[in-house]
Nucleic acid binder design. Sequence first.
DNA 1: GCCAACGTTGGC
DNA 2: GCCAACGTTGGC
Length: 147
Amino acid sequence: MKSEPDSYAYADLARDGRTAWDGVRNYQARNYMRDDMRVGDLILYYHSSTKVPAVVGLARVASEPYPDPTQFDPRSGYHDAKATREAPRWFLVDIEPVRELERPVTLAEMKADPALAGMALLARGNRLSVMPVEPEHARHVLALAAG
DNA sequence: GCCAACGTTGGC
DNA sequence: GCCAACGTTGGC
């Protein structure tokens, strides 16, 4: 999962203990949360749009998928007039922190590592805020952080 | 249904 | 701040 640290950094998640991953308004990212994410699944937490883009933490899915409440709220910036409670359009999961990585694993480092070839995060033009990670890629990123 | 215009994302 | 990528919108 990607987040701009200026809006919600891994440290914010560590402080809060749990958060709803609301505001995702991309169908593919929604599908990953709604169809593929279940309680206990591990998450690489990536900081985007910052000086040194990097995976910085490990998190975990803390709820089953459910409708994003902000879609029903006219005062929310994420309000969707076409969504109804009977037919929600947007889904999310809650997530919780597991641990901060021993060190950030930078985008540049990951791009240069042949072991991570094919990782969705590294794909050209990728803009999804939620995307799958192959288990061996995740393990490799964690091993890099552990040195 | 096509496609140009436009807006957003995000690395650099 | 620039620009490439790409999703969305809207005219036809």
